[in-house]
């Protein structure tokens, strides 16, 4: 019963998990491991979710924390785990072509260059979260979040002036 509820929550938020995995791991094998680790961490804490924050805020926090720790440990986990052969969350074959789209590639190329905290920040921004929500997920002030996003904007402008 609990597992059915969990699967339903994951189904509703699979997009969010997929995007975090994609931004933090460029390697497909590592990405599968990260996806698995995020799902395990979400399951471990599922019974403790008390509804004080929105479910998406809770998922963002756990998924980003897991991704950052995973990223820092140089994707070591892939050596330790019996990976699933296929991803649990995946895009159907023909549509995954969109991930090869020039603009999407450029976008991921830009995200790839950011450090793990700025990656989280930009992901939350691109996902249309308000500064208040971004601040709540990351644990920084709203002003801080706004300042950082504006700095990233400037950095991006400099970087892509000639494009």
């Amino acid at each position: 019963m609990e597992k059915d509820k969990f699967i339903s929550v994951i189904k509703d938020n699979q997009k969010l998990i997929y995007k975090i995995c994609y931004c933090y791991c460029s390697n497909q094998e590592s990405r599968k491991d990260l996806e698995q680790e995020i799902l395990l961490q979400l399951w471990n804490s599922f019974s403790r979710f008390d509804g004080r924050v929105k479910i998406s805020t809770w998922i963002y926090r756990i998924a980003l924390n897991t991704a950052i720790s995973f990223y820092r440990s140089d994707c070591k986990h892939s050596k330790n785990r019996d990976s699933a052969d296929v991803s649990i969350i995946s895009v159907s074959g023909t549509d995954s072509e969109m991930e090869k789209d020039e603009n999407i590639l450029l976008l991921f190329q830009f995200i790839e260059q950011l450090n793990e905290l700025d990656k989280a920040l930009i992901l939350l921004y691109l996902d249309n979260n308000r500064y208040k929500t971004i601040a709540e997920i990351l644990g920084i002030s709203e002003t801080n979040a706004a300042t950082k996003i504006s700095r990233i904007k400037m950095k991006l402008k400099e970087q892509f002036t000639n494009i």
């Binding site: 699967i7 997929y18 296929v86 649990i88």
Partner: peptide, 13 residues
């Protein structure tokens, strides 16, 4: 695109 095409492999989960 993700909203339309993402598939969760429930059996695997």
């Amino acid at each position: 695109m993700l909203a339309d095409n993402l598939r969760l492999n429930e059996e695997l989960l």
